[in-house]
Design a protein around this nucleic acid. Sequence first.
DNA 1: GCGAGCAGCGTACCT
DNA 2: ACAGGTACGCTGCTCGCG
Length: 717
Amino acid sequence: MILEIDDNLVIYRKDGYYKPEFSPYFLYKDDQGPIKKIWKEFKPKQLQKREAPDTKAIKSLILDVPEPYEYDIPLKKRYQIDTRTAPHYIKDELTYLAFDIEVYNEGGAVDARKDPIIAISYATKDKADVLMLSNGNRQTPYKSEKQLIKAFMDIVLTYDPDILVGYNSFMFDLPYLQKRAKKHGIVFNIARWGLDMGKKKVKIPGRIHVDMYKIVRLFKRLGVIEVKDYTLKTVYETLFGEDKFSITKNEIWKMWQDGDKDLWEYSLSDALATKALFEHFFDLIIELSHTSRTFMQELVSSTPGQLVENLLLYEGGPEFLIPALPSREEVEYRESNPIKGAYVKLPEPGIYENIAVLDFRSLYPSIIITYNIDYYTYNKEGKGYISPLGHAFLDHPQGLIPRILEGLIDERDAIKKKLKEDPDNKQLQARAQALKVLANSFYGYMGYPRSRYYLREAAESVTAWGRKHIMEVIEEAEKWGFKVLYTDTDSVFLIYEKKEDILRFLEYINKKLPGKMRLDLENFYIRGLFVTKKGEEAGAKKKYALLAEDGSVKIRGFELVRRDWSPIARETQRKVLDIILKEGSKEKAISYIQEVVKRLRRGEVKPEELVITSQITKSLDKYDVISPEVMAAKRLRQKGEKVKPGTLIRYIIAAQDGKTSDKAWPYELFKSHNLQYDAEYYIHHQVLPAVMKLIQELGVSEAELTENIKQSSLDSF
DNA sequence: GCGAGCAGCGTACCT
DNA sequence: ACAGGTACGCTGCTCGCG
């Protein structure tokens, strides 16, 4: 079992490592036809200096070769393609150790130059412990930070795990350990064979380093999980539905000084939670690795686009000529010419009964397979399937992406069958999920400007066929006498009288659909709500709530699903939606809203309920417009906190003069400065906007509600 | 100098 | 750094008024 292949083509197994004999090549055409040229023969001097041929260097050296091909394939990929080497992990043979460090810091940003490590926790399959640094109040075996770090190194080297698991360990724990060790004149080395770790990147030769933070971000992009932020606590709690032990981070230093047992508990809980996350996703990590032909170490730092590319290179490499990566100019050109996407029907606002939701099963993958849409089947002479935009795709031979997609979908169907007999089989579940998320990523990759296999004509044909098919369903449904409430991309909302009519309609449509395409019943709903756009008569797209027969409520788009709205507004909206869908009581909805307004005016609402969360996406100085989250972020930075792209800012609007952004304070500062919240802001900019459109559908006018609110505010004083 | 109206930016959502 | 379609808050500008 190969654990990892690094960029220098060193192959690591559990029992050792080796470097295979391998001569990478590129192709070029001349009068004689295609010729294979070995890289190191081409310009020996420049290239043999390096362990790994640098594809960029090669590219610049072969510009004078007529029609060069496949000169930019990374060495590791070239090796995988030519020797048919792909990951095959065996779960039961892999050992792992999760870990986490705590740092002493009395305020401001944590700084490796001054702040020592005070605790290191770890957890393996059957053991967990905390190594805590001694202090005046609590004696432990670790009298110095140096001893602490060495003890942890010993634990790793003795347990000898194949996989080292952390949470944000790429960016924090491992570099921090390295820096602190260096300060004490030792090398932090936990490699398997005594090799040094990389100077820049954190590398642990012989082991796989899995940073669960990165995995969580990848899984979010793949649509595997849904989390509101990426802290270990949030992710753990969303996944397992139970509270994780936590403490206030800026009290860690004090807790350590006091010898507080809760710090020990907290440190342990971080290692245990990291381990739990890893174990929860272990099967899926392995299956995604297998399916995308991506070794686990690479998978950890991959994007969905890379996974798709790896699979395409591996499957197509030996047979199809691999297209080169696009130049910067080409990427810019592609970016400035986006392709037309899906069709969304404008809904009529209102409350409806008896709604059936139908949707196409894997719409874009099924279109790609059915019409054989591919980089290699695109035909300029107009032969084959003609898309609604007039682009042609040969009906045979089968293209690379259609072939791969069909393989993924067929295998998934086979696994689904097996799962019927063995429903609790975790490995099969993970395999089915891996196949699904990968299949769903291909359309995006076709239209991804940096893709090797980008083809505008292909990507825009996929969406054009998608629009055509959904339009046809709308037309047919109307012919059948159904009211078509709403459609978005691949789903159709119909109002029905008898469920049986819907089933007959489905059967009729499916008989007419070509190839792999299929329309499914998603569910029947008792009641549904569509609202207007703010301040307009027209319906709002991508915003609705549906009450299913089992009492569950499906909510899309509303403020209550958005993290950049405060919990108080979201919770009030959720409650009002519930009242509307389940009871339809105007009075109850109004009195609930009044209660919330009163609580806000009386200052009874806790700060946690007022926190608005928003992400910073670029460097703080690059913002031209200072929005509330940017202002709050600047206040954090002033205090010494690091704010980078990707940082989530949690802020509260305080009662003071000025623009909204002037009043935006980071949650921590809001509390430590003993600020008051701006009740009127939360009433008029959060709670009321969130519920107004809902109760309008119940026939409550804005005047009626504000009148009630004025009265309720009088009552409260 | 001031408020209303609006464009553009920015974020997070839906499929 | 896999796609496009959409809603909506906020800032900061222009404009009309005086």
